[in-house]
Design a protein around this nucleic acid. Sequence first.
DNA 1: TGGCCGATATGCT
DNA 2: GCATATCGGCCAA
Length: 182
Amino acid sequence: MAPLGLDFFAPDTLEVARGILGCTLVHGPCSGIVVEVEAYKGDAASHFVTRRHVGAMMGTTHGHLYIYPIYGMHWCLNVTTDAGGPGAILLRALEPREGIDVMRRRRGGVPDVALCSGPAKLVQALAVDPALNGRPFTDAFELRPREHAVEIVQGPRIGITTAVDLPWRFTVKGSRFLSRKP
DNA sequence: TGGCCGATATGCT
DNA sequence: GCATATCGGCCAA
């Protein structure tokens, strides 16, 4: 199956968030199935609002990498979405598939189930370079369509203090590789 | 130019 | 489930 192109990210953010679950994310020698994402649009918790300079690309691009630092030492990987408005999805967890030995080394020998069970963890496991921020997704990543249907669970986003009522976290039902249980 | 604070991870209860 | 370490970058002024 041919990799998905940038226009995969053109629809509404919630639609893209649902659509990317079960797809395989590939970066260098490593890959994993996307099992957890969050959607950010123009809501109060979105960087489009709270970091309006660096977050402006959420409104002007889709299919581009938005990589930002948090808590001084961690990085989070997003892809911008929605050709018609501000949007991005935060990649929060993967089910590791290829290059697992490499990921184990990068993650310091944590259990395999924890290799990519969090946004900063998967950045470390895949060795995502923050300098890729602003580049097209396809410059450094590949996205393979899902091969099997997935059941999706929806719930509130994690780690934010505003707009906590919006249920814009999407997870693959029953996955053992999530950052937290739904 | 400086002060603020977080889309985290971890470890303890 | 909750507290806290930790600190660079981001925005406002």
